[in-house]
Amino acid sequence: MSITKYKTTENSSSIQEVDVIRETASFVYLPRFGGGERREAKQSSWDYYHDSWEEAHAYLMKLAESHVKAARRELELANGRLGNIKGMKPPEDAK
């Protein structure tokens, strides 16, 4: 009997349905090619395993929203730097 999980990856906009053999609080166990099983962390710096598609989708939405927020902050800083540079005047002794 397998358990269905939904895997998201940090820099991806996809949700992958995955059948796992078993799970613990921290790990999922996937079938290994050629027999046996391999263990993966449910939450790593790269991949997350979710219990439902909706949970995986909500996670990706939150992640994407935080990326947009960070990009907006960076754009504001860049525009501020640009404004400072545009407002620069040469020193009076510059030739």
Rank of each mutant, 00 (worst) to 15 (best):
R38D: 07
R73Y: 03
A56C: 08
E23D: 11
K5G: 00
Y59F: 15
K95I: 08
E23L: 03
S45E: 12
P31V: 06
T4D: 12
H67T: 04
Y6R: 09
I21A: 01
A56I: 02
D19L: 12
V68Y: 08
K62L: 10
L30V: 04
P91I: 06
E40F: 08
Y6H: 15
E92V: 12
L75V: 11
S45C: 00
R39V: 06
H50V: 00
S66D: 15
Y29N: 04
K89S: 11
L82P: 01
I15V: 15
R73N: 11
H50M: 02
A78H: 05
Y49Q: 06
H67Y: 11
V28A: 01
A70R: 13
V18W: 08
E76L: 06
G83W: 07
K42I: 08
E92T: 10
W46I: 14
E40I: 00
G35K: 08
H57Y: 14
F27Y: 15
E74L: 07
R38C: 03
Y6G: 02
S2N: 05
H50A: 05
Q43E: 14
R22S: 15
M88E: 11
E37A: 12
K42H: 01
E76A: 09
E76I: 01
E54R: 02
A64I: 03
R38Q: 12
E74F: 01
F27V: 00
E65S: 11
P91A: 14
E76Y: 04
I85P: 01
E65I: 02
V28W: 06
K95W: 10
R32K: 15
V28H: 03
R39D: 01
R72C: 03
M88K: 13
D93L: 08
E37M: 04
P31N: 11
K95L: 12
S66C: 05
G80L: 10
K89R: 14
